[in-house]
Amino acid sequence: MKGFLDALHNTSKAIDGLPETLAPFGLQCVRDNMKHGNFKPNSTLTKNTKNAGAKPLFDTGETYASLTYQADAHEYRIGTNKAHAPLINDGGIVKAKKAQKLAIPINKQVKRRTEVFGVRKVLEGLERQGWKIFYRPKSIMGRAPVGAKAFGQRIKTSANKSNKAQQKGVFYVLYIRAKQIKVPKREFMYMSDEQQKEQSQLAEEQLKAAIK
């Protein structure tokens, strides 16, 4: 009788500990989904603004690193504190909140400065340096003063090559303007049938070990 009670106690204890035991496996599954998912490729503009431009869902790696888990006696949960995670997982539409249109940085150089200062302050800073800013329906452009450091994507035209144009400065595209952008669904916060099957096997092994 004592052996049966001991086995029952050990089994109950093992069941209570399953969420904590299985959570690291679940976390790795989600990380694998994010890293190796067969996702829609990034657009050319996205590639130009990201550190790992050719790889969907990855830029600085902060979102991947932020994935973590919490476990109690009944379940475990995988999640992240990054506010944009639901958008990149589920997809959706992004619209401008205050401005008429979104201003999307043309490249990494513009993106880095925009992340620090914001669009308005970046443009105001350029104007203080002598830049002339032009708002077009689909872009924000800047004409740099003579001798200014390159910033944005230079517009290569025959006009820029003329001596007269060079004396006025060079034109750069700074931002692409759009009323909205569509973020494609790239689901990674899940466990596939194969992953769930492997997790079930791990749980069974854990319970069998507790009975022995």
Score class of each variant (00 low, 15 high):
residue 4 F to H: 01
residue 6 D to G: 01
residue 7 A to K: 13
residue 7 A to S: 06
residue 11 T to P: 00
residue 14 A to C: 11
residue 14 A to H: 07
residue 15 I to Y: 02
residue 16 D to V: 08
residue 17 G to Y: 01
residue 20 E to A: 15
residue 20 E to I: 03
residue 21 T to N: 11
residue 25 F to M: 10
residue 25 F to R: 10
residue 26 G to V: 06
residue 26 G to C: 08
residue 28 Q to M: 10
residue 30 V to F: 03
residue 34 M to K: 04
residue 37 G to Y: 01
residue 38 N to C: 00
residue 42 N to Q: 09
residue 42 N to T: 11
residue 44 T to F: 12
residue 44 T to N: 11
residue 47 K to E: 15
residue 49 T to K: 10
residue 57 L to V: 09
residue 58 F to G: 01
residue 59 D to C: 12
residue 60 T to R: 13
residue 60 T to S: 15
residue 61 G to S: 09
residue 64 Y to G: 02
residue 66 S to Q: 09
residue 70 Q to P: 01
residue 71 A to P: 10
residue 71 A to Y: 08
residue 77 R to E: 13
residue 82 K to W: 00
residue 85 A to H: 03
residue 89 N to I: 04
residue 93 I to L: 13
residue 93 I to Q: 06
residue 95 K to A: 07
residue 96 A to E: 09
residue 97 K to I: 07
residue 99 A to C: 04
residue 100 Q to L: 09
residue 104 I to V: 11
residue 105 P to L: 06
residue 105 P to I: 03
residue 107 N to V: 05
residue 109 Q to K: 07
residue 111 K to L: 13
residue 112 R to G: 01
residue 115 E to W: 02
residue 116 V to Q: 13
residue 118 G to A: 07
residue 119 V to T: 11
residue 119 V to M: 07
residue 120 R to E: 10
residue 122 V to K: 02
residue 125 G to E: 07
residue 125 G to A: 09
residue 126 L to K: 13
residue 127 E to S: 15
residue 129 Q to I: 05
residue 129 Q to V: 05
residue 131 W to K: 01
residue 132 K to M: 09
residue 136 R to L: 13
residue 137 P to S: 07
residue 138 K to M: 05
residue 140 I to T: 06
residue 140 I to K: 01
residue 141 M to K: 04
residue 142 G to V: 04
residue 142 G to T: 05
residue 143 R to T: 06
residue 143 R to W: 01
residue 146 V to L: 12
residue 153 Q to F: 06
residue 156 K to H: 12
residue 158 S to L: 10
residue 161 K to C: 00
residue 166 Q to C: 03
residue 167 Q to T: 13
residue 168 K to V: 03
residue 168 K to Q: 14
residue 169 G to P: 06
residue 169 G to K: 04
residue 172 Y to F: 15
residue 174 L to G: 03
residue 175 Y to A: 07
residue 177 R to Y: 05
residue 179 K to M: 06
residue 180 Q to S: 15
residue 181 I to V: 15
residue 183 V to N: 03
residue 184 P to M: 06
residue 187 E to V: 11
residue 189 M to T: 06
residue 192 S to M: 08
residue 194 E to Q: 14
residue 196 Q to I: 05
residue 196 Q to K: 14
residue 198 E to I: 02
residue 198 E to A: 14
residue 199 Q to T: 05
residue 201 Q to C: 00
residue 201 Q to E: 11
residue 207 L to W: 01
residue 209 A to T: 10
